[in-house]
């Protein structure tokens, strides 16, 4: 029920991207689905349950914020969704493809073709300029946009030939976003994208993410432990101790510029 209401909402929000087939019910596509996913680190007495049975669906075109304290399992789930890690048990689907037992090679291809990552510490290659950091992705993607275009999307046209060490944290994160979107990914997975930034820079970065989401309909998952950010999301998924404690649909979303923390 909840899902159907949300799906209709999304269709209104993204008329262009979500044009439904004639006569069909207005139901948003499920991009990711997990079923009782667990992740255990260590063995014996030192076992740590990072995820303790997570069931979740993520829909095309939504901005989902995963909220929760450190160690609640947000990043672990993000890594599993992004094909960076395997679940200990349970199943994970990306559309019709089950990721659960995909071999390494197939996971690499999945990441290469479908997923864009944004990290808290940007993870730019220090020896490459902004443009080249983006080209790192466009070189291996099947249908990328030009690196310059990706950088223009994040407002960095005039900083393209700067090295990471010559840019501010906000600029570096925008390069990281440009790098993530340059491959025209279906999903953007952002792990604490504003975690290392001050609030005004953080807002700029969130504006870029929202802009990308609106223009390209990219499903965007943002991990944060900053509760204020949840108000820009379509849905807020709350984590506690490796489990989903609540899922809230925002009836009224705020623009990033309206956020304060």
């Amino acid at each position: 029920m909840l899902v159907n209401v949300f799906a209709r909402m999304l269709c209104q929000a993204h008329g262009r991207a979500m044009e439904p087939a004639k006569g069909a019910t207005h139901v948003a596509e499920i991009v990711f689905r997990t079923q009782d996913v667990t992740k255990v680190y260590g063995t014996g007495e030192a076992r740590i349950y990072a995820l303790g049975g997570v069931d979740l669906e993520l829909f095309a075109g939504e901005i989902a914020v995963l909220l929760g304290p450190s160690g609640s399992g947000k990043s672990t789930l993000l890594n599993i969704l992004g094909g960076l890690d395997h679940a200990t048990s349970g199943r994970v689907w990306f559309r019709d493809t089950e990721l659960t037992d995909l071999p390494d090679r197939a996971l690499t291809k999945f990441r290469r073709d479908h997923v864009g990552f944004v990290f808290q510490f940007y993870n730019l290659v220090p020896s490459l300029t902004a443009r080249e950091n983006v080209q790192l992705v466009t070189d291996v993607s099947p249908d990328p946009m030009p690196a310059e275009e990706a950088l223009a999307q994040v407002g960095l046209t005039d900083r393209m030939d700067h090295f990471p060490s010559e840019m501010s944290g906000g600029e570096q994160q925008r390069v990281a976003i440009a790098r993530a979107i340059a491959k025209r990914p279906e999903i953007l997975l952002c792990d604490e994208p504003t975690g290392a930034l001050d609030s005004s820079t953080g807002v700029q970065v969130l504006e870029v993410l929202q802009d990308i989401n609106e223009r390209f309909g990219t499903t965007t998952v943002i991990i944060t432990h900053n509760a204020d950010i949840q108000r820009m999301a379509h849905r807020v998924i709350q984590f506690q101790d490796g489990k989903i404690s609540s899922v809230v649909i925002n009836d009224e979303r705020l623009a990033p510029s309206e956020l304060v923390w």
Binding site: G82, L84, T108, K109, R111, R112, D113, V115, G116, F117, F119, F121, N123, V125, L136, V137, V140, S141, R179, K183
Partner: peptide, 11 residues
Amino acid sequence: SQIGLLKAVGY
């Protein structure tokens, strides 16, 4: 972390 990134973006 760069190696992780390269892999994350599909290398």
